[in-house]
């Protein structure tokens, strides 16, 4: 059985339909990359999976159980953790306090403050610093660590490389590689297509709230994704006025 299945999900922001009938599933241990232009609905889709947005229609199934109506804090207890876009740290609180908050749901597992600090050694000297004063890379590490503290089965990563220097992005992905090989199921949103294809088993390209392209990352050509990304495979592309 799939760890997560999303069926015909529709999510609205007021008048705007951000996700328009998306279906996909992900097996335990898989890594899925979501790509797509800004406004394609990736962040909204992740937030709906995490329970921060209530969908208008469709279902979210975790391990076969319908969790569509379950609020976000209970989903954390069920093993779904989101590293939100823009990190969303509690900036008035220290690194350690942010990490400890991740433990609120009380899921059993072997993640602890010590283990997070071992995974992200750059956080060690900053343990008691307010997160508002950290560098971008340190903030991102704290945000990922906070999600890991809940011992998730499904980790949702929303643009973890946003605003970081290439060097720091490499470091973040190096530590993610450890998680991927340890069997954590991951859905990640990533702007850099090459990186997205190289870390994932499966890739979904979204366009205007829909799945424009879905397939295994191996053998997916850059050209194919580019066409889906801009919607150039559609009929309309042919009718450009000369």
């Amino acid at each position: 059985m799939s760890l997560l299945a999303v069926e015909n999900l529709v999510v609205r922001h007021g008048l705007l339909q951000a996700v328009r009938g998306v279906s996909f599933s992900i097996e335990r241990g898989e890594t899925l990359a979501l790509v797509g232009a800004n406004g394609a609905g990736k962040t909204t889709l992740l937030r709906a999976i995490a329970g921060a947005h209530q969908p208008t229609a469709g279902r979210v199934l975790l391990d076969g159980a319908d969790i569509t109506g379950v609020p976000s804090h209970k989903r954390v207890g069920m093993g779904v953790a989101l590293v939100p876009e823009g990190r969303k740290l509690f900036v008035q609180m220290t690194v350690e306090e942010n990490l400890l908050l991740g433990k609120t749901a009380g899921r059993p597992g072997d993640w602890s403050v010590e283990r997070v600090l071992d995974t992200f050694p750059n956080l060690k000297p900053r343990r008691h610093a307010k997160t508002g004063h950290l560098s971008g890379g340190e903030q991102q590490a704290t945000a990922i660590g906070r999600a890991l503290m809940s011992n998730p089965e499904l980790l949702l990563l929303d643009e973890v490389s946003l605003g970081l220097s290439p060097l720091v992005v490499d470091r973040v992905y190096a530590s993610l590689q450890g998680l991927i090989s340890s069997g954590t199921t991951i859905i990640l949103v990533e702007q850099d297509l090459n990186r997205a294809l190289s870390v994932s088993d499966k890739v979904i390209c979204m366009l205007e709230g829909r799945v424009a392209l879905e397939g295994p990352s191996k053998g997916m050509s850059r050209d194919e994704v580019t066409k889906a990304y801009f919607g150039l495979h559609r009929k309309s592309a042919g009718s450009v006025p000369a």
């Binding site: 804090h73 991740g102 009380g106």
Partner: peptide
Amino acid sequence: DTAGLVGV
């Protein structure tokens, strides 16, 4: 909102 996402 984020508090909910970390399990609070």
